[in-house]
């Protein structure tokens, strides 16, 4: 069964559209532990792919590899026609890949504007290593970005630790959108949110995809997955065990693929 699953993952039919990003046979080991085994995945413009799997299935590792934080032990990453030898976080950003993390990686001590523009602050002028911040431009740009997420913040300078969970999520997403032109990955974006804010976040994810960006949504919440995704990819023990269009599958199939329980019962 295992070999069948990985074969199925590798023999994806040649795509009609050009993939924005392709993973081909990605494997990753942590010591003796195999986190990922020959994972192949194509990501297309405007498509929302839900990445599901039990804890430890390898979702986070895959995200880290795609965003250049971890390097795979085997396999290739293609960005359109380009295949970097060793993808670093910096390069991933240059390729337009952004991640919104589960534990929102915000600087709690900084304001919303500073967080949104972190790492790409507009510069008024440069003197050697000294880059002078263009504060007004940063603020208008941040305000616009946060507005696009559909949230209004009163004070863009107040430390984000004073904001609510939903507002913080909005800031994190707004930051990702500054640079993302290829792929945005959402790591459990709705885990800490209420009903209304979950709805708003899913709407935003749709809007991101509508801009022609590939979206990967990692979620334990199958309601969210079936609400927004167009394709569902399930990982189990580091292998792709399901890769189907959302409308052609059911919750039972997805749960079975994730856990492996019901599927084996059916065989």
């Amino acid at each position: 069964m295992k070999s069948m699953a990985s074969d199925a993952a590798i023999s994806i039919p040649a795509p009609a559209r050009a993939a924005l990003m392709r993973c081909v046979g990605i494997s990753k080991f942590f010591g003796g532990v195999r986190a990922l085994h020959r994972v192949s995945l194509d990501l297309f413009p405007g498509e929302i792919v839900a990445l599901v799997g039990d804890n430890g299935a390898g979702k986070s590792t895959l995200v880290k590899i795609l965003s250049g934080i971890c390097q795979p032990d085997e396999g290739d990453l293609w960005f359109g026609e380009e295949r970097p030898q060793r993808l670093t976080a910096r390069q991933a950003r240059k390729f337009g890949v952004e991640t919104v993390y589960q534990h929102l990686s915000l600087c709690d001590n900084l304001g919303a504007a500073a967080n949104v523009m972190l790492g790409q602050e507009p510069v008024r002028w440069q003197l050697g290593p000294l880059r002078i911040l263009d504060e007004p431009r940063a603020r208008t740009e941040a305000m616009r970005r946060i507005g696009e997420v559909g949230v209004v913040l009163e004070d863009l300078n107040a430390p984000v630790r004073r904001l609510s969970g939903g507002q913080r999520q909005a800031v994190a997403i707004a930051r990702a959108m500054v640079n993302a032109h290829r792929l945005v990955m959402f790591d459990e974006p709705t885990a800490a949110l209420g009903v209304k804010q979950t709805h708003a976040t899913l709407e935003l994810i749709r809007r991101v995809a509508q801009q022609g960006i590939a979206v990967v949504l990692i979620s334990h919440n199958l309601d969210d997955v079936f609400a927004v995704s167009m394709r569902i990819v399930a990982l189990r023990h580091g292998q792709v065990c399901l890769n189907v269009p959302t409308e052609k599958t059911s919750r039972a199939t997805v749960v079975a693929a994730m856990t492996g329980v019901a599927l084996e019962g059916r065989e």
Binding site: S67, I69, A89, R90, R93, T99, Y101, S105, L106, C107, D108, N109, L110, A114, L118, G119, Q120, E121, V123, P129, L130, R131, I132, L133, R175
Partner: peptide
């Protein structure tokens, strides 16, 4: 107060991992 250098120092003191993820 006025340079990206200073802003990034504050950011690193706030959340170093976030800064690494942001490519600082």
């Amino acid at each position: 107060t006025h340079t990206t250098l200073g802003r990034h120092l504050f950011a690193i003191g706030g959340n170093r991992e976030a800064c690494e993820a942001a490519g600082i």
